[in-house]
Design a protein around this nucleic acid. Structure first.
Lengths: 209, 209
DNA sequence: TAGGAATCGATAAAAAAATATCGATTGAGG
DNA sequence: CCTCAATCGATATTTTTTTATCGATTCCTA
């Protein structure tokens, strides 16, 4: 993949550019310059130019800037949104069910096909998406070629659930469980600590004087 | 605040250390060395030592390492979890309601006091937490000294809701709305694009060969 | 049609962060 | 009680990321 040349930090900015550009496109803007983007997004213009140079399929035009629609396509391609991936939710609590029925994933090439829960009370379906008992995780995940798992169980159940996901062949896990979990080599784990994110936001805001 | 000397990247690692240490503490471990942490967390030992040196109130002991309990306290203090902050949820959909009743925030010094929604159908309460109509946002936020807002509305309502939050005196916003929103100077905004996070996870995992 | 203003992209410099190296310290084992 | 092995913390180096500078390009306007 040629993306290895793209810096990690830049990669994290891409989704933000994408949203910005979509907002501009919706407003009827055809061309946008690095300087404009930089100003609106509170970034340095040079940084924006460098980032865009990494993904833009055709160079920006002096005096005009970049074609918005074109840039959106380039970004989506660079981000891999044109690829289709099956995902599942493990832990059908409030948060898990929110993910299960959230319809915003499809634009990103992600299809949440099912949820799993250890409690029989949760088993059933929600908005047409099935909720299975945990025992069927491996069977369904293999059948549906699920490679991505969203972990939304209580902290004390996190490690066991995580192990089950790995066992089921899931290779990328996004965990919202408030616990430290280990995964074997070859499995990508990202932990989203919502409370910690909030807390860091507070201290960031506190620095604004 | 003396935290300005702490690197941004290190600050992001602190919550992960904290979780790890709590897991160790729960397992009865009293002392832990940088090398152990590094190995378990897939980091460089030097990096861990440097990070811990930033927060540890007393130096680590050669041959033993750091006192786990002590380190937990130091990290929590550095992260500001001992301060109390009031937060509110704007948008009482599935995701918003999940945040409203989530009981994991208190350990981080965050108290979610209420939710707001534009739809009268959502108004009421959930697990003792009130859900008010949007019109009362300013009144309640000011009364309860709410400085932190969690934005969980549909994309097309995001900017308006965000403006209302700013108007109500909220200075830090964590947005889960799939849209690009602008905030005035002095307001801290963090966007959590769940779908984009998932998508980035996929491509990260895809690089593992 | 020609000048000018603003943008681009490339190269270079600066800043930040991660990693490596090394002597000093200290608890454990003989 | 003394040696050994492992850890710490500090300094130095490398790598990564961001910011600055500058000539070339090209679209708008007169």
């Amino acid at each position: 993949m040629e993306r290895s040349e793209i810096s990690k930090a830049a990669y994290l900015r891409f989704p933000v550019y994408l949203r910005y550009l979509k907002a501009e496109a919706a407003a009827g803007v055809e061309y946008v310059s690095s300087s404009e983007i930089a100003e609106d997004m509170h970034l340095s213009a040079v940084c924006v130019r460098k980032d865009l140079a990494l993904v833009a399929s055709e160079p920006g035009k002096p005096r005009l800037g970049f074609a918005v629609e074109k840039l959106i396509c380039d970004l989506e391609r660079a981000l891999g949104y044109h690829l289709k991936t099956h995902a599942c939710v493990v832990g059908a609590g409030r948060l898990g069910r929110a993910f299960l029925v959230y319809d915003g994933f499809e634009h990103y090439g992600i299809d949440v096909v099912a949820a799993f829960d250890i409690s029989p009370a949760q088993v059933g379906a929600l908005s047409g998406k099935p909720i299975y008992p945990m025992e069927r995780l491996k069977e369904i995940a293999e059948r549906e070629r699920v490679k991505l798992g969203i972990l939304t169980v209580p902290g004390d159940a996190a490690q066991a659930a995580c192990d089950a996901m790995v066992e089921a062949g899931i290779t990328a896990i996004l965990s919202f469980a408030p616990a430290y979990v280990r995964v074997p080599e070859g499995v990508t784990l990202r932990c989203e600590d919502l409370a910690a994110t909030l807390a860091s936001l507070i201290s960031e805001a506190g620095e604004h004087h």
